[in-house]
Amino acid sequence: MKALVHEEKTGTKGLSYREIAELEPNAGEVRVKLKTAGLNHRDIYTLQRHKPTDPPLIIGSDGAGVIDAVGDGVSDIQVGDEVLINPGLGWKEKSDAPPQGFEILGLPFHGTFAEHVVIPAENVVQKPQYLTWEEAGVLSLAALTAYRALFTRGQVQSGMKVLIPGIGSGVATFLLQFAKASGATVYVTSRSEEKCRKAVELGADKAIDSNGDWHEALGGEKMDLVIESVGAATFNKSLDQLRLGGTMVTFGASAGDVVQLNIRNFFYGQFNLLGSTMGSTEEHREMVQFIEKHQIRPIMDHMYPLSQFEQAFERMEKAAQLGKIGFHIR
């Protein structure tokens, strides 16, 4: 089968679109003939974590397609089923943190940037019929990350004021849609005027310049909840926008992972700071039910043939996208 394989060199220089041996499902596993797959920031980090001395690896975490083989013991999934993939391996029930052994598809196990992928049967769910293949293929990782951060960790409620810095990412666009569907008032930031404009079109109550004075731009309003994924570049500005006793949930550090915190201001503010990651199988099921109830679709940025992976990675590395970047597999 054709696949996007990382080997021999660090970063994108180690990627090649080539033939690789196809796998057969073992007991409890299924094989998915992939139609589409989604690119995530995790894939860029994987290119640094997967060493040149490691065995060749098919990268990619998100995908959707049709079941074309099932292993022994699989009874509730049939050949021909249209499915999307939950990339989280080994985290079944909702919990404070993932259990030991939790992994994400695409490292250390072969991922979705290929014509086929073999995964545990519990990691596929029926594709919501209203989603296109393009939408289904880019959904799970970003939507599940947003769902856990906003609902499980952030405990969002109708009427809350929610701030989402850095609106361009796929997770951020899900956060915006999820929070609005929950009845929250949502504010976003971006350095891009175009992204700010599009965010308002998508339902944001206000979009402001990330480089400006947030307090002034927001008219002094304070937030009940901030979902922070940018990192050091915005962390303290985000914290400054919290009301007394407010909560900040953080799950990303694309613009720096070391911050300086005024601890006195923090404890006098009675703030809550929570970390978050992708999420469990239980939360993935809740997330799919939520998007079906509200008919939420991923915001699509651009789809590429998998053979044009260089263009897709370049677009993400430049943070040029608004929403999800994906691949057509065939």
Rank of each mutant, 00 (worst) to 15 (best):
E24A: 12
V117A: 07
Q155G: 13
L141W: 05
R31T: 00
L202Q: 03
L261T: 06
I77Y: 12
R297S: 14
G80I: 14
G245D: 01
G101Y: 08
W133D: 13
D76I: 13
E22R: 07
L141N: 13
V171Y: 04
S75W: 13
I104Q: 07
D257L: 10
H302F: 14
L242R: 00
K127W: 03
V171S: 04
V30H: 01
E201S: 01
E292K: 15
I44T: 07
V138C: 04
H50C: 02
G101T: 10
T12Y: 08
A312R: 02
R297K: 14
F109S: 15
F271G: 02
Q289R: 07
A312I: 02
E283V: 05
S169K: 14
S169H: 10
G275P: 03
D43Y: 00
L242S: 00
A253G: 12
E216W: 15
P165G: 01
L84E: 09
L175P: 12
N236W: 08
N236S: 10
G219C: 07
V288H: 04
Y147G: 08
V171D: 01
H294W: 14
K92A: 10
D213K: 01
I119V: 09
L202C: 00
G106R: 00
D301K: 07
R18K: 15
V156F: 09
V138I: 02
F178K: 15
S190K: 01
D209G: 11
L23R: 15
G170P: 06
S95C: 04
I20G: 11
F327C: 06
I20F: 07
R148Q: 13
L4N: 01
D68E: 08
E19W: 12
F290W: 12
L244F: 14
Y130V: 04
T281A: 07
R148G: 01
P99V: 03
G154M: 12
A121Y: 03
I77Q: 06
E201I: 00
E286G: 08
D43M: 00
G231A: 03
G159C: 02
Q48Y: 13
G219E: 13
D62H: 02
G219I: 05
N211W: 11
D209H: 15
G275V: 15
P98E: 05
G65H: 09
R330G: 06
P87V: 10
T247N: 09
M316V: 03
L144K: 13
G88A: 10
A204N: 08
R297F: 11
R148F: 05
D257S: 15
A142Y: 06
V66W: 03
L322S: 09
D54Q: 05
Q126N: 09
L105E: 00
E314D: 11
K94I: 09
F251G: 04
V5G: 10
G137Q: 06
